[in-house]
Design a protein around this nucleic acid. Structure first.
Length: 926
RNA sequence: GGGCUCGUAGAUCAGUGGUAGAUCGUCUCCUUCGCAAGGAGAAGGCCUCGGGUUCGAAUCCCGACGAGUCCA
């Protein structure tokens, strides 16, 4: 088993006179030019030395530092690449946010399936690390939003049997050159090379691994150089720190990371990183919150921050713990220090969170309750709370806009709109929550109890109410609540263990994988519906057969477009093609019979179905394009399913789509149809396409490969592998059938295209015509008439009620038709009225008000009884009903003064009523 | 993608199987020069929808639709 030690013995280190040392404190090995150096230089083994001591040749702003880095690497033969979105789930489904520059190139470039946009390249990639959210502002050094500056090189081994299997070939540069670049950049920035240490720190992550080097300067890690070159392999020869074994890969990648914020900070030597990177915003926020320190306080803050800078503070708790020590060293009271610092910490966090939001919303993440949208919502609400606590009253949309402006986003109006919409939602949640908590608090206060933890968890988990808000309201109402320390883990406990669902994975048939790539004919001429091919192989399956041809016109399921169906015919037999899918580069046709390996077949596609799918597919592009114009530039596809009679697309949007907007989308979409423009396709180089059209190309996921297929419909361009009509007029018509909110922030548009659109309209018209016929009015008059009928129907209901009570009173006061009996002191009426339950109740009530016990019954709808007992008569109505209802095969009950019941045996009703007086007497005596 | 909560009068919400309620708002009347306030009264409900269980469902069960919230 090898270790990685040899991997670090670089020729560059030797030539430059570096020595390898072991840090006596942490045991790490590191390389340095300074032979006298003892420790590795990284906290906790060493302290920050740059605070109050700008450590590069000039102080640089964030923008200047970024430019310095990128242009340095440009001068050293790297191509500068535009940053990718922070929403990494645009191109990969295993993560939500971009957390490092290498995320941009995973998994397609790192695996070698797709060439990098340039090689080597340099980039400054905006990243968001939510896991640091609690530390922001408090530690003086953490930010949630940051830019990772990097240079990358993608290499493939030269001695491979088949070098073409990877999208890049040969070695660009590797470890020596990487360290040399790093060294040179430090020097170019004016750092003293003697003070740099290179710590050996092997990297492991996400199934890959490799040697890596942390680069430390004056106590702070300014760069990490990762040499990704291994993959997890049970038989691998390297055992790494995660306990797994790894072996070398065919590709090996230089993955570096230089923290823009840290470099800026070190160049300025400010007490905290925030003051170096957001100076304007921080002074604005201070002013807005009315924080106005005396010179004395100002100095105290600076000295405290400087002391904190010298400590190993990696978590918010460390900062809290360090506070006591710092207060002691400054000779001030710890409470006083806290009161001075906490508002500042909030302000630092607000500045950082606003930048995070600018990145997120600027990259068109729509706040919602799922995915990245939820993360955006969380950050926004947290920022709002911070503003409220510290007394910042500037509108949040303006604060976010300040950062968006600085970051040069073009969609600033949409960003502000999203912030405002989201704040309004939050306000409503708080209002709703406040009411709920107040009520709850009053209940507990009345009972003189504290609000239990269980309620607290329920309030947070189901209603989004923070425990401290509950505590505040509880105090107002005179009760108490204690928030347990492990509150959030209790909440997590409620959600159970996150079951990781293992993908069953059909386990690709190796025999299929070994077959040659299928030639795809469906792109050449999309109107062709028949072809000839040779059967390369057939496989018998549980149901039917899988057939592989040398070439095919059948479209395999993909990109939301269902597979074609049709037939394969030889001279002897014809089999039905039921399903078609891709396995790698091979297209597999699932059939109901075996055409015979080696046979020539004639393939025929179900042309009607295919044409309808093509109409729907092109229509999908048009509808998204139209929705974008109506709802805004942030609209993008969150999923799509094309069908033959109807299709649907899910789009990200922060509001419901109203009727007016639907009509407008439909109008624009059909405008494109009637313009009858041609639908173009091309296969450009992917990086050229990305440069020209941006990531908005990838509405339906990112395809692999050096070239991608673009579909142009009017002004709309999308990367798409589906089949399309030749001209938009071929679609015929587009009809939006309905919209629904499938999740918060995701709207689903269902629509029909071509003949199906006409049919859908016809169906609606039929329904309307039918309703019109029933009402005997013209279709135009239906709404008005329906409204009138509804009102009249309600009025009649009320009139009937009135009449029923009048009738009941008349019955009670006037000639009693039923049998009148005496039960003890009281008189009772037993009466059969065949009418509905409402009337029975009214009659019984009226009789009881007249001082009589009422037993009324109906046989109109099964056998039903109502028994009413006036005040002061000791008969339990519920018991009477129970007894009587039993005699008709049912049951009943109710309060002592008014009960009802019944049963199915109508024929036994009269007999039961005959027994009623006896039953009353029995119950009275009981 | 998963968990939880909710849907009753214009608004906010009670109502845990037995006659649909409260508060605010609205309207009418009284009081007032007028307004605010006060007093008396009234109107206002397909209890989201569709199934099921039951003699009986706002209430229990299933489904749909709508909303909220927490997590990955």
């Amino acid at each position: 088993m090898s270790t990685l030690e040899a991997e670090y013995r670089l020729q560059y280190f030797e030539e430059e006179g570096f020595v390898r040392k072991e840090c006596p404190d942490c045991g790490d090995f590191f390389w340095t030019r300074d032979t006298d150096r003892e420790n590795c230089g990284e906290p906790p083994c060493a302290e920050y030395e740059f605070i109050g001591n700008p450590s590069l040749d000039e102080e640089r702003s964030l923008e200047e530092m970024r430019e310095a880095f990128l242009s340095f690497f440009e001068e050293h033969d790297h191509e500068r690449i535009e940053p990718y979105p922070v929403a990494a789930n645009r191109w990969r489904d295993d993560v939500l946010l971009t957390q490092a520059s290498v995320y941009d190139f995973q998994p397609l470039v790192t695996s070698g399936a797709t060439p990098p946009p340039a090689n080597p390249l340099t980039i400054s990639q905006p990243c968001i690390r939510m896991q640091d959210i609690d530390n922001v502002g408090k530690t003086g050094r953490h930010t949630m939003a940051f830019e990772m500056m990097a240079h990358h090189a993608f290499n493939a081994r030269e001695e491979l049997d088949d070098p073409d299997q990877y999208a890049y070939e040969g070695e660009v540069y590797w470890k020596d050159q990487t360290v040399e670049y790093c060294d040179e950049f430090f020097e170019a920035m004016g750092a003293n090379p003697e003070e740099i240490t290179y710590i050996e720190d092997p990297w492991v992550g996400g199934g890959n691994a490799g040697p890596a080097i942390e680069v430390i300067y004056r106590g702070v890690e300014l760069a990490t150089l990762v040499f990704m070159s291994m993959e997890q392999d049970p038989d691998g020869e390297y055992e790494l720190k995660d306990g797994n074994t790894y072996s070398k890969m065919d590709t090996y990648i230089v993955d570096t990371g230089y923290g823009l914020e840290r470099w800026t900070w070190v160049s300025q030597g400010t007490p905290t990183v925030y003051e170096a990177i957001y100076p304007e915003m921080i002074s604005f926020l201070k002013g807005n919150a009315g924080i106005d320190h005396t010179d004395e306080q100002e100095e105290l803050v600076t000295r405290a921050a400087t002391l904190a800078g010298h400590m190993d503070i990696d978590e918010a708790e460390d900062a809290e713990r360090a506070r006591g020590t710092i207060a002691e060293q400054l000779g001030v009271d710890v409470t006083e220090l806290r009161e001075l610092l906490e508002p500042l910490e909030a302000i630092y966090a607000i500045a950082d969170h606003c930048r995070t939001l600018a990145y997120m919303l600027g990259d068109e993440i729509v706040p919602s309750n799922v995915g990245t949208g939820y993360l955006a919502r969380m950050v926004l609400r947290r920022t709002k709370r911070l503003c409220d606590t510290v007394g910042v009253d500037a509108p949040l949309d303006e604060l976010v806009d300040m950062q968006a402006e600085r970051l040069d986003y073009e969609n600033r109006d949409t960003i502000r709109d999203m912030v405002r919409t989201e704040l309004e939602k939050y306000r409503e949640t708080l209002e709703r929550g406040g009411r709920r908590v107040r009520q709850l608090a009053e209940e507990y206060a009345e009972r003189d109890e504290d609000i239990p933890t269980e309620e607290l968890i329920e309030l947070y988990d189901s209603h989004g109410i923070q425990p401290d808000m509950v505590a505040d309201i509880a105090h107002e109402k005179g009760t108490d609540v204690s928030v347990p320390d492990d509150f959030y883990s209790l909440v997590a406990g409620r959600h159970g263990e996150g079951d990781v669902v293992e993908d069953a994975g059909e386990g690709t048939d190796e025999r299929v994988a070994d077959l040659p790539e299928t030639e795809l004919l469906y792109y050449d001429d999309q109107t062709r519906m028949a072809f000839e091919a040779m059967v390369l192989d057939t496989f018998e399956r549980d149901e039917g057969y899988d057939v592989v041809l040398d070439r095919t016109l059948f479209y395999p399921e993909g990109g939301g477009q269902p597979a074609d169906t049709g037939t394969l015919s030889t001279e002897d037999t014809t089999v039905d093609v039921e399903d078609v899918h891709r396995e790698g580069d091979v297209v597999v046709h699932h059939t109901d019979g075996d055409p015979g390996t080696g046979e020539f077949v004639r393939g025929q596609i179900d042309a009607g179905r295919r044409r309808q799918l093509m109409r729907n597919h092109t229509a999908t592009h048009i509808v998204i394009h139209a929705a974008r114009q109506v709802l805004g530039e942030h609209i993008r596809q969150a999923g799509a399913q094309k069908g033959t009679d109807r299709s649907r697309i899910d789009v990200r949007h922060y509001d419901r789509i109203d009727r007016e907007q639907v009509r407008e989308i439909e109008r624009i979409a059909n405008g494109i149809v009637t313009d009858n423009v041609s639908v173009g396709s091309e296969w450009p180089d992917r990086h050229d396409a990305e440069e020209e059209y941006g990531f908005d190309l990838y509405q339906g996921g990112i395809p692999p490969g050096e070239r991608i297929r673009l579909i142009h419909v009017a002004d709309d361009v999308q990367a798409c592998g589906g089949t399309h009509v030749a001209r938009t007029g071929d679609i015929g018509a587009i009809k939006i059938l309905n919209t629904e909110r499938v999740q918060d922030g995701v709207e689903r548009l269902s629509f029909a295209a071509g003949p199906a659109a006409i049919e859908a309209t016809e169906d609606t018209e039929d329904a309307l015509a039918e309703a019109a016929a029933t009402l005997d009015v013209t279709p135009e008059e239906v709404p008005e008439t329906a409204a009138r009928f509804f009102t009249e129907w309600k009025e009649r209901g009320k009139r009937i009620e009135e009449l029923e009570s009048e009738l009941a009173e008349a019955r009670a006061s006037g000639g009693v038709e039923g049998e009148e009996v005496t039960v003890g002191e009281a008189s009772a009426v037993v009466q059969r009225i065949d009418s509905d339950i409402e009337e029975l109740r009214a009659t019984a009530n009226a009789l009881a008000e007249g001082g009589q016990v009422a037993v009324v019954a109906s046989g109109a709808d099964g056998a039903q009884f109502v028994v009413a007992v006036p005040d002061g008569v000791a008969i339990d109505a519920g018991e009477v009903v129970g007894e009587l209802a039993g005699r008709v095969g049912g049951g009943g009950g109710g309060p002592a003064d008014f009960a009802q019941g019944g049963g199915p045996q109508t024929e036994a009703l009269d007999e039961a009523l005959d027994d009623a007086p006896d039953v009353l007497r029995q119950v009275l005596n009981a």
